[in-house]
């Protein structure tokens, strides 16, 4: 999306004086305050650009790495229907990664750079994908909880101040809804199945619950980016607000399934009209973030292998394109 045009624009910006920058910044914020959208070639503060690059590329990487835990079950899905659905879902995740990389590129970072950052381990992706998928019920729990939490996070981003990100999120949110519903359907089938199947569903809920509610990020007091991101309208709700919303809608769903959320303190609070819940073990979150989750190394290795194993395909495609081009040129001559 006009990435190249941005490069030349960036060079011109170097010559603006401090007072000019201040007035540009003022106009930028006024535009954001008026709920106008910022588009790729519009002037924007460098910090806004960098924040978006970080957030969108992390989001894209999460979609790509997120294909791994679920891809693990494609060959072992219990029926042809489940297999077709899971393939479609994993393909969607790949597509979401592509929409997001393309949105990030409008900010002046190349796809190669982003890929390099992912493979070098310098870019982050959602910690949730560093947990293993041990049983088929995990595929249900991921759709229901992980995609459910993602939707809760992503719906407000459809109104993000940056146009290309907002538009990508609209497409993504439309598609995510199927992901969550197919997950719940898997959980429902297991919960209504044999005692062993129900136990399997409960075990998956036990393992995925806490990581899912940690997906909303640190508590508001510890979240260093929240205030600025809200001023820029990149973010519309705080982490804790979204987490509370997610718990409020999910707890009754667990009840419907006849499964128990692994939090003894989870209880409806008539006064606040919200669920109270137990305290989160942030040390686990930090450990996974630092690379010490159950699958961090495995996930990165899988991505690197995929990249290396696909190299000959990329090279062949590039060589073929070059040959076709030179052939067309010599025919025209």
């Amino acid at each position: 999306m006009y990435t190249q045009g941005l490069d030349s624009l960036g060079k011109e910006c170097l010559h603006t004086s401090a007072s000019e920058t201040a007035s540009l910044e003022e106009r930028f914020q006024a535009k954001v305050d008026a709920d106008d959208k910022i588009e790729p070639k519009d002037w924007m503060p460098d910090a806004y650009r960098q924040t978006l690059i970080r957030q969108i590329s992390q989001h894209a990487h999460s979609e790509i790495v997120g294909m791994l835990p679920e891809g693990n079950w494609i060959s072992r899905a219990p029926s042809l229907r489940r297999k077709a659905v899971l393939i479609a879902k994993v393909q969607d995740e790949g597509g979401h990664g592509m929409y997001l990389y393309s949105a990030a590129e409008t900010l002046g970072i190349s796809r190669d750079q982003m890929l390099e950052q992912l493979l070098a381990g310098t870019a982050k992706y959602s910690s949730i994908f560093n947990y293993p998928t041990l049983t088929w019920a995990d595929i249900g729990a991921i759709g229901w909880l992980v995609d459910g939490a993602a939707i809760m996070n992503q719906v407000p981003i459809c109104r993000c101040s940056y146009g290309p990100y907002a538009r990508a999120m609209v497409r993504i949110c439309k598609e995510e809804s199927f992901h969550q519903r197919q997950g719940f359907e898997i959980m429902l089938a297991l919960a209504r199945g044999t005692p062993e199947q129900k136990a399997m569903a409960q075990d998956a809920l036990n393992r995925w619950w806490w990581p899912s509610i940690m997906m909303f990020g640190p508590s508001d007091g510890d979240s260093k980016h929240t205030a600025q991101s809200m001023r820029w309208k990149i973010k519309r709700f705080t982490n804790d607000e979204l987490r509370q919303k997610f718990i409020d809608v999910t707890a009754p769903q667990a009840e419907f399934l006849g499964l128990r959320i692994p939090d003894p303190e989870l209880k409806w609070n008539e006064a606040t009209q919200h669920y109270d819940f137990g305290s989160i073990d942030w040390s686990e979150f930090q450990a996974v973030l630092k690379g010490n989750g159950p699958c961090n190394r495995e996930r990165m290795q899988a991505r690197r292998n995929a990249h290396e194993d696909g190299r000959w395909v990329r090279d062949a495609a590039a060589a073929y394109a070059a040959k076709q081009k030179s052939r067309a040129a010599s025919q025209a001559a």
């Binding site: 393309s102 590129e105 796809r111 394109a321 076709q324």
Partner: peptide, 11 residues
């Protein structure tokens, strides 16, 4: 609707 990378127009 967006953008993508490809080696040539057919791709």
């Amino acid at each position: 609707v967006g953008s993508l990378h490809a080696a040539d127009t057919a791709m």
